[in-house]
Design a protein around this nucleic acid. Structure first.
Length: 295
DNA sequence: GCGTCCAGGTCTACC
DNA sequence: GGTAGACCTGGACGC
């Protein structure tokens, strides 16, 4: 039995631009149906550990959340949806700056800049580690393997993202042979054990009061998190100070702003310096301006 | 089908 | 602080 919940969207919110803001919509348990304009996600019901599939779509000024189960009115899923779509993010300052930039005014006009994220920082950590040093197809495969092997099953058979404790119970052999994580396997073991044991608490990183450098240092101390991975995770947390430069982003920059010729990372930094704490969002919106159809 | 080469980001050892 | 090499996988390519 499906049950629909409705919530009001914030002013200037663009559902499709947010859902497809970066590749996360393509990683399990997310899925996006372009034709229908529906974002799918499989949540975990904290009460019993069962999976709940949600279909999220937008109708006028309302967001519709269709759940494949009947839940009590006080269920947490609408709040989690607000979190993943970043309803409460205040990016007006970024839009004000972008409005005066010929490369970025599209973002201000159309309401881009909210980057889709997972319900937990932990899930974003795992996925970020899966993006390091490999093709996108391998990233998809690793996440898929993880969810298929350890996720809880919904009534329709789709699977949710496993909890840290579930991942921590697995050894390096599992990550190597089932997830196909290769040399990253030992990083997964170390990271998930630390989270499950409470040695690190990723959810606390959402606190905007944590000093930037302190946060950066803590994430950087985790094996497998270098410059790119730290910046990427921090963007998802809501800190856009780092550019999260990877080979794709660099190549895009060379093509758009340097006549296809390579240049140093410092030159790239210089281009977005005026955006200050928003520069990570600025380069991302600049480099993805041709991703989205005008509708 | 098989073998080889390459891209990708981070870590570690070394200078 | 900077650099080189190793790590591992999937995809592209040539045979």
């Amino acid at each position: 039995m499906w049950k629909t919940k409705e919530i009001a969207i914030p002013k200037g919110f663009n559902f499709k631009l947010t859902a497809k803001s970066h590749g996360w919509y393509d990683l399990a348990p997310f899925r996006f149906d372009d034709e229908a304009g529906v974002l799918f996600y499989v949540f975990t019901d904290e009460r019993n550990g069962k999976a709940i599939e949600a279909k999220i779509s937008c109708k006028g000024k309302r967001l519709l959340i269709d759940l494949d189960t009947s839940l009590p009115d006080a269920n947490p899923i609408p709040d989690l949806v607000r979190h993943i779509l970043r309803f409460d993010d205040s990016i007006g300052e970024f839009h004000t700056m972008a409005a005066n930039d010929e490369n970025l005014n599209w973002a201000a006009t159309r309401g881009a800049g909210r980057l889709l994220r997972s319900p937990t920082v932990f899930e974003d950590m795992v996925k970020t580690l899966c993006t390091t040093n490999c093709s996108w197809s391998l990233t998809r495969k690793m996440v898929e393997n993880l969810v298929a092997a350890l996720g809880a099953s919904s009534s329709s058979g789709s699977r949710s993202f496993p909890a840290a404790e579930t991942l921590a119970a697995k050894d390096e052999k599992f990550y190597r042979e089932v997830v196909r994580a290769g040399y990253r396997s030992s990083y997964f073991v170390e990271m998930t054990e630390k989270v499950a044991a409470g040695t690190i608490d990723p959810e606390k990183w959402l606190d905007p009061e944590i000093p930037l450098e302190e946060l950066r240092k803590e994430i950087k101390s985790i094996k497998g998190f270098g410059e790119y991975a730290v910046d990427n995770l921090m963007k998802l947390i809501g800190r856009y100070d780092g550019l999260a430069l990877d080979s794709w982003l660099r190549a895009q920059f060379y093509g758009k702003h340097n006549r296809g010729r390579k240049c140093s990372d410092k030159t790239i930094e210089k281009k977005y310096k005026r955006y200050g704490k928003w520069k990570g969002l600025a380069i991302w919106c600049d480099m993805t301006s041709d991703w989205h159809d005008p509708s």
